[in-house]
Design a binder for these strands. Structure first.
Length: 425
RNA sequence: GCGCAGGUGGCGGAGUGGUCAAUCGCAGCAGACUGUAAAUCUGUCGCCCAUUGGGCUACGGGGGUUCGAAUCCCUCCCUGCGCA
């Protein structure tokens, strides 16, 4: 499906050409924040929006009807995982991502760049996407062959060699390969192949990795533009640069100057650095194109992301936490399986109108979790998705109404206050 | 009734003369999780104080051998299987 659209270019001229997506900003400010709509071949994404993660073309445990019912409008799948299993040929044979998973809404695929990190520097270490205490993670002084060598990834100038966790086979992914696979998968929005670095790397390494990400961005774009899929799949370039202001700004300049349809902001952050990094970048990226903050999804981070000019977000937190029994409430997160909820006849979150809260009590869901019934993780995933997707929808409304700061104050005031009273361990 | 095999923490199950409050698993209790190698992982898990640490109790009951017993012997009780 293609859409013929008119849009106003950054220089103000009206252009008419084939573009896979169109982005309209409906309300701007204060500051960097905005609300808009991304029109895709599979319908609109009203931004700011939270996108559910369905890595292997499935949001774990949930049918597409459940996703719709929870308010999910867009799903993000993963190139690396679908390439490894079942393989791009089978995805194509099944009619592509939308058809195979029976999802007719907008979709995205991540490029596999995150796996360069999660299976590399992040593998087996306690370094994850967000660090609570950067000081606790010693910087890697030298790229010492044995000490630092990623266990499942080997990075070089052209791409990354992955050792499959499934069978140990080696797979070499380049920017061109990532594009090729993403073309076969067929999501509406795809991402350039990048290197997500660990915050534990030295600045020298961040510099080196950033240059690589920029080269790979260029190559992703060139390959994509020369393929017929460019007319029906939008390509987002990815900004990196770790926690360094000069690198982040340079990256936003470099990637922002390329003819991408939108941008992703990637990287592993220190919790305290997230909003500054996003701000540096979004002050530079072209205003007229959508910006996706990769892998971010805790309420307090979403507020910072929207406030600093991000349009879309994805995160595994709602589903992973839900599966593991942690649920969001207006008074902070709770562990539903805890002893104190076993006789609690209230819904997970009073006043929530999700399927789980409308029909079940904390006591019942606690029982499901403790007895390992799969319905427990399902109901908690539904609730968490509804909670986070709904929260970002409220942010969108608030941006349009000019009440964002009120929403932020009221929501976080209650959400974080409750968190602080949780017992310290 | 006879024979055989057993009785260890909430449960399962190691240990078969000293380093045993007692491997380990489950259950229990708590925590973590941010572009998903995650329906996963971590901690805790006899009792009482405590910051490191300290004190107390246990191996079906009773008795014995030994410097020392969950471990060896005797006896009683109980469970399972087999035979009558």
């Amino acid at each position: 499906m293609k859409c013929q659209v008119n849009f106003t270019a950054a220089d103000g001229t009206l252009e008419s050409m084939e573009k896979p997506i169109r982005f309209r900003i409906e309300k701007k400010g204060p500051g960097l924040m905005r609300a808009g709509t991304i029109d895709t071949p599979h319908g609109p994404i009203e931004t700011p929006a939270f996108i559910a993660v369905g890595t292997k073309a499935a949001v774990r445990g949930l049918t597409v009807e459940m996703l719709r019912d929870a308010g999910v409008e867009t799903v993000l799948a993963n190139t690396y995982h679908l390439y490894m299993q079942p393989g791009e040929a089978r995805v194509r044979a099944m009619g592509g991502l939308h058809k195979m998973m029976n999802w007719n809404g907008p979709t995205m695929t991540d490029s596999g760049g995150f796996q360069v990190f999660s299976l590399g520097a992040g593998y087996g270490s306690n370094v994850s996407k967000i660090l609570k205490d950067l000081e606790a993670v010693p910087l890697l002084k030298e790229r010492d062959e044995e000490a630092v060598k990623p266990k499942l990834v080997e990075i070089d100038h052209d791409g990354a060699a992955f050792k499959s966790p499934l069978d140990g086979s080696i797979h070499y992914i380049t920017p061109e390969r990532s594009m090729e696979i993403q073309h076969a998968i067929g999501a509406d929005i795809i991402f350039a192949f990048d290197e997500c670095t660990s915050p534990s790397e030295t600045k020298a390494y961040q510099r080196e990795a950033l240059d690589r990400t920029h080269r790979w961005g260029r190559r992703s774009l060139d390959y994509h533009r020369s393929a017929p899929n460019a007319a029906r799949q939008a390509l987002f370039g990815i900004v990196q640069g770790g926690r360094y202001e000069d690198l982040r700004k340079e990256s936003a300049q470099t990637i922002g100057a390329m003819d991408f349809d939108g941008f992703g902001i990637g990287g592993s952050f220190d919790k305290e650095d997230l909003h500054t990094a996003v701000k540096w970048v979004n002050e530079i990226l072209p205003e007229g194109k959508p910006r996706h903050l990769l892998g971010i999804g805790e309420p307090e981070d979403l507020f910072l992301g929207v406030e600093n000019g991000c349009d879309t977000f994805d995160c595994v937190a709602p589903t992973r936490l839900g599966r593991h029994g942690t649920v969001y409430t207006k008074d902070g997160k709770i562990h539903i399986g805890n002893e104190r909820y076993q006789d609690d006849q209230n819904p997970i979150d009073e006043g929530c109108d999700c399927y789980a809260c409308k029909n079940y009590t904390r006591a019942y869901i606690a029982h499901l979790h403790k007895s390992r019934e799969m319905l427990g993780p399902m109901l908690c995933s539904i609730h968490n998705l509804h909670f986070i997707v709904g929260l970002v929808k409220k942010m969108r409304r608030a941006v349009i109404d000019g009440t964002f700061s009120d929403l932020k104050r009221d929501f976080l005031g209650r959400y974080l206050a409750a968190k602080d009273t949780r017992p310290e361990k």
